[in-house]
């Protein structure tokens, strides 16, 4: 499956939005955290898991989705949320803990919920899988259109919830696609020391569904395979498991010294940064550099607007903490 020109440019621009967003969040996150790094300080407190480098996965998959489709995301959700069309201003405001945020400040960066585009999150590993099955089952039972995509990391593929959900999806032929972002690190533990098989796509066989492995963090290849899997789900042919090689250019969370990384790994990953790589390819395919510059500027402007919106928004009254437990 090949992307149209429009899809390609959307993918590129969305990757740039995601990257600029992470860069902006990183900058704000560090405010108030120097010279001594204290997670509790600054305009954005708590843990912060950046997705720099993993953008191709989000855009290659979400290019095939629209608002009615469900996405369940991970503790590292920003690129997935942006590609799914979560409101960027309200997402930024949530990360700042403001009243205008998606959840009025109750959820924060690991718990982004935007029902308008069927986007949900969990900070618990592999807990994207079961809910995606449920959303897919609901569509099937109600004979409504739309499919579900669960994103997870390669570390989550060793969690019971992953295996149980895959079996459910397989036995019930659910319209769901499981997308593993294989950045090869579960915090400090490499995939090779945590996973009994080199590639998780082979595990699909145990659950009666096709499995694919996509090397190279390549948005074109991701678009192709994800498009086939999503079309298959839409056609009622059942679930697919896809594992995608991607790169975590940042630490597990901000403040991670990353001493576990082999020497030179980061440099090698940055040399393969998917965003400049895609830009080069687009130019080689005949897209004018100026038109890409325009997209990049537009992306920067969107991010700047979202950050300003978040900064300028008010905090909710603190007593809002006691509301929204029940509807």
């Amino acid at each position: 499956m090949k992307p149209t020109k429009e899809q390609l440019l959307w993918m590129y621009e969305t990757m740039v939005v995601s990257r600029r967003f992470e860069e902006a969040i990183e900058k704000v996150y560090l405010e108030g955290k120097t010279p001594a790094f204290n997670m509790a300080s600054g305009p954005i407190p708590g843990e912060m898991h950046l997705s720099n480098g993993q953008e191709p996965v989000a855009v290659g998959v979400c290019a095939h989705l629209d608002a009615r489709d469900t996405v369940t995301a991970t503790h590292r959700p920003h690129h997935q949320a942006i590609a799914k069309g979560v409101d960027l201003n309200r997402m930024a405001a949530e990360i700042f803990g403001k009243a205008t945020g998606l959840s009025g400040g109750r959820g924060g960066h690991m718990h982004l919920f935007d029902p308008a585009v069927n986007f949900a999150c969990s900070g618990i590993i592999a807990e994207s899988c079961g809910p995606a099955c449920g959303a897919a089952l609901s569509r099937k039972l109600q004979k409504k259109s739309g499919i579900a995509v669960a994103f997870l990391g390669e570390g989550a593929a060793n969690q019971g919830a992953f295996h149980e959900a895959l079996n459910l999806a397989g036995v019930w032929k659910l319209p769901v696609v499981f997308v593993i972002e294989d950045n090869s690190w579960g915090i400090s533990v490499p995939k090779s020391e945590a996973t009994a098989v080199a590639r998780n796509d082979v595990r699909a066989a145990g659950y009666g569904m096709p499995g694919h492995y996509i090397p190279g963090n390549d948005p074109y290849a991701i678009f192709d395979i994800a498009g086939q899997a999503i079309a298959r789900a839409r056609d009622g042919e059942g679930p697919t498991l896809i594992e995608i090689e991607t790169y975590r250019l940042a630490g597990h969370f901000m403040g991670d010294a990353e001493q576990y990384r082999p020497k030179g790994e980061k440099e090698a990953l940055f040399a393969k940064d998917p965003i400049p790589k895609m830009r080069e390819r687009l130019i080689a395919e005949g897209h004018a550099a100026e038109s890409l510059d325009t997209l990049e500027k537009r992306a920067e402007a969107r991010v700047a607007e979202a950050i300003s919106f978040a900064r300028d928004s008010e905090y909710a009254p603190e007593t809002d903490a006691l509301t929204a437990v029940f509807v």
Binding site: A40, S103, G105, R106, G107, G108, E318, T319, A321, L322
Partner: peptide, 12 residues
């Protein structure tokens, strides 16, 4: 209540 993210809400 579940623990809120925003600092001022959690501190409350």
């Amino acid at each position: 209540v579940p623990i809120p993210y925003a600092r001022h809400m959690e501190q409350l």
